Simulated assay, not measured.
Amino acid sequence: MTGSVATAARSTRSVAWTRRRRAFGGFCREFARNRAGMVGLGFLVVIILLALLAPLLAPAWMLDVTKLLDQPRFAPPSWAHPLGTDDQGRELWVRMIWGARVSLLVGFAATAVSMIIGTVVGMAAGHFTGWTGGVLMRIIDFFLVLPSLILAIVLSSVLSRGVWTIVIAIGLASWAGTARIVRAQTLSVESRDYIERSRVLGAGDWHIIGKHLLPAVLPLVLANTTLTVGSAIIAESTLSFLGLGDATLQSWGTVLKNSMDVSAATAGFWWYVLVPGIAIVLVVLAFTLVGRAVETIVNPTLRSR
């Protein structure tokens, strides 16, 4: 009897994994048909590869100003200096490659913090009724009306300077939007018949949340994640531009702050401002294209349009 039960359980898991593989395959095929999404994904792959290969493409000594005494300061873009140099003679393309590591790390890590908190709180607010759901909704509403950038600035000012401080600040300031989306999806799933059947058969809260609600909200969380990464990169650049980042690390926001410190925009050193600014815009645009493509696939309403 025990053997037959175990065999049935394995068979059920096998069927579930087969369905997931087919669903993932269908998702990949749909995404491949979206040209804008593929362009964004291709650009992001290139940027991520450049960031990962930074130690090989541009060794760390190229950022050491003590070894760049012969380098010209504020050299405009040319064959010798593809993106120009900064006020200390460092090549901007070197700083941009190393800065991509920090900017992408903060973007992905802060988004992960935001998604985890937003998903957990959103599912709890939609699933639990009574005072528990009411309290959670008031907390979500409070963080929704609170300006996220101001909250991130306050947290970055209070906590010690560092990359992970920025990650925590951005993550804690941006989870409420995800929680609202997850709560709305949770309420929609809660009204379906199979949830009621699960309760009648004795399923507890954690079983319903883990087996039914979480798989139902994950597609929307995934779509929202790709859109949130771009916002997190902008927030990191803003905090670094305001001097709240780690000055010892390269990031695109730090490059912009350095250009402001030497008045590059008014002094005619336009490349010092445009290069990091255009990089931030293009990466955020790429994440937006990928996010919209994913949202179109997982949202039946958008897909029908």
Rank of each mutant, 00 (worst) to 15 (best):
G122A: 05
D86K: 07
G130V: 00
S103L: 12
T111K: 00
V94M: 06
D87W: 07
I117E: 05
H127Y: 15
A109W: 01
M96Y: 06
A109V: 01
A125F: 09
A100R: 06
V94G: 00
V106D: 02
A100Y: 07
G89H: 08
A112I: 14
T132R: 15
V106W: 04
W131A: 12
T85C: 13
V106C: 02
T85L: 04
S114F: 10
W131F: 07
V113R: 06
A100H: 00
W131Q: 12
T85P: 13
M123S: 01
F108G: 05
W93D: 10
L104K: 07
T132S: 03
G99M: 02
G118W: 14
W93F: 09
M123F: 05
T85Y: 13
L104G: 01
R101L: 07
F108W: 11
L104V: 01
D87Y: 14
S103W: 09
G99E: 09
R90Q: 12
A112H: 04
I116C: 13
T132L: 08
V106Y: 06
R101Y: 07
R95Y: 03
T119L: 11
M123Y: 08
S103T: 15
T85H: 11
G130C: 06
V94N: 08
T132H: 07
V121C: 04
A112Y: 01
L92C: 06
V102S: 01
S103M: 09
S114E: 12
A124S: 15
I97N: 01
R95M: 02
G89F: 11
T129K: 15
S103E: 10
W98N: 03
A125H: 09
D86V: 03
T119Q: 03
W93C: 00
D87Q: 15
M115G: 02
M115P: 00
R95E: 05
D86P: 13
G133A: 13
M115V: 13
M115W: 03
S114Y: 11
G89W: 03
V94I: 09
V113Q: 04
G107V: 09
G130E: 12
F128S: 02
D87P: 05
W98Y: 12
R101S: 05
G107P: 09
V113S: 04
A112W: 05
I97G: 02
W98Q: 01
G122E: 08
V120Q: 13
W131D: 01
A125Y: 08
T119P: 01
T132K: 09
G130W: 13
M123W: 08
D87G: 10
D87T: 08
V94F: 05
R101M: 10
R95T: 00
T85G: 09
V94K: 07
I117C: 02
E91H: 15
I97T: 12
W131E: 02
G122D: 12
T132Q: 07
Q88A: 13
G133E: 14
T85R: 11
G107F: 07
M123G: 00
T111I: 00
L92V: 14
E91Q: 15
E91F: 14
V113N: 04
